[in-house]
Each structure stands twice: as C-alpha cells, then as structure tokens.
C-alpha cells in the first residue's frame, strides 16, 4: 500500500494539559473531511488521549473520548501507539480504546518516513 499522499499527525500532549491535543485532532479531522487519508501516532503523554475509561470533560472543558470515538466516522482508523509509550506510562493495551494499535518502536522511523505530510502536536 502506498502512503505517498497520506498524512501523519503526531499527538504528544495529554488531554486538558494544553490546546495541543485538540488542535492536532482538529487538523486530522479537517484533512479527513477534505478526503485525505490520515493516520495518527500517539507519543508520550499523547497516549493518555486513548484511555477508554475517560469520563466527561473536566469542568468547562470538552471531553476527549467522544472525539477519539468519532475518528472512525472520518475513516481515521490508524491510531498508532509505540510499545515504549505504553510502558513509560505503565499502561496495558487493554486500557486503550478498541481502535488503538500498538506498534513496535523500531517501526517508527519508517512510519514517519513514508508519509508525505507529517505534523507534530
């Protein structure tokens, strides 16, 4: 499968810590709404956005989980998490939403390399 014109959005920030997560998801949704193929890579704190037990938003803030769940409606079904990011947070794959895929760390350079557009949030 060619990834020549596909976009990779890297999410590195936790819910509620800043606007970065929200902005990254928005960029992914806009690109998908315009017909682009988009994959998401969650690094570091970004993995916390995928925890399936997240409840409603902190006071005055929008919850993250409904948006994560919505990604598949935009045909964004590659939610990639390196094993080391899970390990660093003492998390198990079972704690993540069903759509998340754990990948080996040594696949990351090639993953980033093969996407023509890569954006960091």
């Amino acid at each position: 499968m060619s990834h020549e014109h596909e976009r990779l959005v890297i999410i590195r920030h936790a819910p509620y810590s800043s606007n970065a997560l929200r902005e990254g998801l928005d960029v992914a949704l806009v690109a998908a709404a315009f017909g682009q193929t988009v994959s998401l890579l969650f690094l570091g704190q970004g993995v916390l956005a995928l925890l399936k037990e997240q409840a409603a938003g902190a006071p005055g803030q929008k919850a993250t989980l409904p948006t994560i769940d919505m990604l598949e409606m935009y045909d964004i079904d590659q939610l990639l998490v390196p094993q080391s990011a899970l390990d660093a947070l003492n998390l198990q794959a079972a704690q993540l939403v069903d759509g998340a895929t754990v990948v080996a760390d040594d696949t990351l350079p090639e993953l980033v390399q093969r996407h023509s557009y890569v954006m960091n949030f």
């Binding site: 890297i10 590195r12 570091g44 704190q45 990351l108 350079p109």
Partner: peptide
C-alpha cells in the same frame, strides 16, 4: 527532554 526522546525514536537513516 521528552521531545528529544520522541524525536530520536523517529529519526531515520
């Protein structure tokens, strides 16, 4: 930093 470690995990030849 964490950002540096994340960068290094993706650097390719």
């Amino acid at each position: 930093s964490e950002a540096a470690a994340q960068m290094l995990s993706t650097v390719a030849e």
